[in-house]
Design a protein around this nucleic acid. Structure first.
Lengths: 216, 216, 216, 216
DNA sequence: CATGAATGAGTATTCATTCAT
DNA sequence: GATGAATGAATACTCATTCAT
């Protein structure tokens, strides 16, 4: 049993992984109940530690939530930004990749619950809202704006109002995430995200196409 | 001490107006704090009555919330359905009217807070979610689906996946409502709903246009 | 319709009977729920009047309860006292008559709920307890003591400790009343009060018999 | 300000003793006020803990009450059943011992308040009534019935209606308990339980005696 | 007289946070 | 470090009583 290997004592490894385990448990519990209704006792139980231990790593519930957002969303944003930075091909392909990534990686993971969390609690926890706005939304919007600018500069896209178009691009994805959190349990069949994504990409292709021909 | 002034009665009978006043106050308070975090004491204060009075008209917090939804949303849905039923002209004009109505009547009124309320509380109050799903979402989706079917039947729209397209139509409007509830306070300028609506209608026009020519 | 007879206007008759109707309704409701848990709104509804009307006839809930006791118990006590005063025959027959009266008139009527009411609320409403103790218990005990004294004086009963024996006489009747209020709903069959009364009278006969022969 | 004195900790861990302390405090407070009127805040204060601590050990008020009954009554019932099981001598002596135990152990302890509690709350808390009926009354009645059957089988008692006689045996003891809860405060002298018990045993002896001679 | 709309004090329960162990 | 027992603030709902009509 490798746990007994004195060179890599188990408790040592655990101590260093505790924060991640707690954040992971918190994502699960926050996703199920929402921030306000989530009980730290449940988070602790889910993480396999005691309530008091949470406070050794996070000063309070709000900071724990911020850590959840950081851990679950920011790596994906980083990846998306690297993807754009290294993009060689047509801009619509970049857009397609980004939206597909969102639909497959975020929406299907437990991180898909985060938008709902933010929407729900922004009013009562302005700090949370500001944090998310600065760290996530601004960056995500800037990223999409950059794709649009690139496409327009390369003549792949017709000229559009960037700010509005960014919102048009994001909205169906956001709606899918919220839908999952709120109504999926009520419906027999889960909504067909793939169909929505296809329809959305089709609509975007037509919308962004320069007058002469298709963008991609 | 003015409390003893007999010319200023402690309260007045307002059996007829009270329910509306309470629902109105509830919309305000629910909109600010969310359903769970809203204190009925605040609703009462906002309505200018005592806590007990709320219970003369509504059996509990949840029913009060349903009344808010009924009063704030259903009349608009009724109007939208009548609008479609009486429509003579091109289908895209119907769509345009419906979206414009939403953007101008709901989004700018305090009823714009309701989508956020539902999203936020659906997980913890399944009854509320079901109520809203049955009474609002289903009807609104059916309405938009009917417009799409009408347009396709009349050759004004190219054939599309109705369910996905309904979601594409709704998403930016929903996002605007949520944005207002969650982030408007953080930004200097309010988001330009008119610009978003224009861009959205433009995108829809291109998306729904039959291969030959423009739909409207 | 005699109600229209101007000589005996209906509302006039009702006005005079209102207090009795209210007391009657109160007995029903107090009997079902207990004093503290009874809602004056229910009393009013049962009496066919409005809540406010109760306060035209009784200053508060406690006084209404006292009126209930007065109306439901005191007439029976009066009757019992007259019965003893006019008694000619053997003392055991008097005892038998009194207990039978209790078992048939009080226990089976709604007044049978009153002992439970008093027991339940004595701690929280000392005024009520004192009132009942002075107006009912003292008199009832004195009455039974008088029967015992009469029997001993006439040589029908052996000498007994009067105070203890009065309690022995009362206890099974009281227990029947309490049982009905508390556990009758839980058992399939109602307790056989007639059998209990017969056994009780048999026991009393043996207990009170002078050493020589039977008392009656 | 002593609150800041580090030598006086705000609380101490007492995981083992706490439940008993709380049950004990609850018996006191329930006994004084009744179940419904008792405030958990008072129970907590009486036990020297905070309100929240009650919920660490009991899920709600009703379960706390059941725990009180279990702790205060059931051990006595156990003892009584063992006593009958091991009885060698005459049946009347068993009866005498049981009643004397009740009069001295239960009636004088704070557990004597429980019958009143049950009587008072049975109507509004049917769960409580059922619990008490099943766990206490049924067992106590069965126990006394067994004593009677034993006495009749051994020819010590004349044949009697067992059910009624059990009630006759219990009634004066029950009445004593109720009296203490309800009227003792009103009288100068406490009722002479010893005299009542003596008179009751005397009456039972005469009542149960076979036609030929005394039972014991 | 009668009504019933309005009042507001009172309480069981939950859970983030603290801190004795 | 880790635990989990203990704290106490916060809030929906009820109902006796009042009083405008």
């Amino acid at each position: 049993m490798p746990e007994d290997d004195p060179a890599v004592p188990r408790w040592r490894r655990r101590k260093e992984e505790r924060p991640r385990e707690i954040v992971d448990a918190a994502l699960t519990v926050f996703g199920e109940r929402g921030f306000a209704a989530a009980r730290l006792e449940d988070v602790a139980a889910q993480a396999g530690v005691s309530k008091g231990t949470l406070y050794l790593y996070f000063p309070n519930k709000e900071e724990l939530f911020k850590a959840v957002v950081r851990e679950a969303i920011l790596p994906n944003l980083d990846m998306a930004e690297r993807l754009l930075a290294g993009a060689q091909g047509p801009s619509f392909a970049v857009l397609e990749t980004l939206l597909t990534l969102f639909a497959t990686r975020i929406l299907k993971s437990r991180a898909g619950a985060i938008p709902k969390l933010i929407i729900a609690e922004a009013g009562n926890f302005p700090d949370l809202a500001r944090f998310y706005y600065e760290e996530v939304i601004r960056r995500a919007f800037a990223l999409l704006a950059a794709v649009l600018e690139r496409g327009m500069a390369r003549g792949e896209f017709r000229p559009v109002d960037v700010d509005s178009t960014v919102r048009l691009i994001v909205a169906p994805m956001l709606m899918s995430a919220l839908w999952r959190s709120s109504f999926e349990a009520l419906e027999g069949r889960p909504p067909d995200v793939a169909a929505l994504l296809a329809a959305h990409l089709d609509a975007l292709r037509r919308t962004l196409a320069p007058e002469g021909g298709p963008p991609s």
